[in-house]
């Protein structure tokens, strides 16, 4: 066990002043990092809402809004605004298998009239009698951490590639 030295002023203690000077500098750098994390959180880069928390992609079939950054085991929303499609009395939304591996689908509003599964993924079928498009909201919950990519295909068109970063 280290016995503290007696200093020139008579105190017996190890002040480790050089270490403290280094640590005080490090502390101030850490406070800047605290500020950066706070600003990032306000912007939505740590999930949980904010101007950059969601991202939207638009295709001929739909406008899809989904979380850019999600949090593990936390509820989030994925919204699909379907574009009007003449003559289509039902709309099909296909979620790729990667989606089911990374997210739990807790609820869908409105409820699909039919749900089927294939090796290409889960297909949700929605009645759309007036062919005027509509809004679908999926309540999802991330089940694994890291970069998660999946596709959503509307009415058998081009797959929309989505990437969400899930924080622990």
């Amino acid at each position: 066990m280290e016995r503290p030295q007696i200093r020139s002023d008579g105190l017996q203690l190890n002040e480790h002043r050089q270490f403290q000077e280094r640590f005080w500098k490090f502390e101030r750098v850490a406070w800047i990092a605290f500020a950066v994390v706070t600003v990032s959180a306000l912007l939505g880069l740590t999930g949980g809402g904010g101007p950059l928390a969601t991202v939207s992609i638009e295709s001929a079939d739909a406008l899809i809004s989904y979380p850019r950054v999600a949090r593990w085991e936390t509820a989030d929303e994925l919204q699909i605004a379907l574009q009007p499609r003449a003559g289509a009395t039902e709309r099909r939304v296909m979620l790729a298998p990667e989606f089911a591996k990374s997210f739990q689908l807790e609820d869908v509003q409105p409820r699909p009239s039919k749900s089927t599964v294939s090796d290409l993924g889960q297909i949700l079928v929605f009645d759309n009698p007036d062919t005027q498009g509509g809004q679908i909201t999926m309540h999802i919950r991330a089940q694994s951490v890291g970069r998660r990519s999946f596709t959503i295909t509307i009415d058998g068109g081009m797959p929309n590639a989505l990437t969400t970063y899930v924080l622990p």
């Binding site: 066990m1 280290e2 002023d9 190890n14 480790h16 403290q20 640590f23």
Partner: peptide
Amino acid sequence: KQWAPGAARYMDGAPTVLISD
């Protein structure tokens, strides 16, 4: 911390003399 006093300083800190003599 007993085994590595250097690491203990990082975890617990060290005393600072504010007024000396």
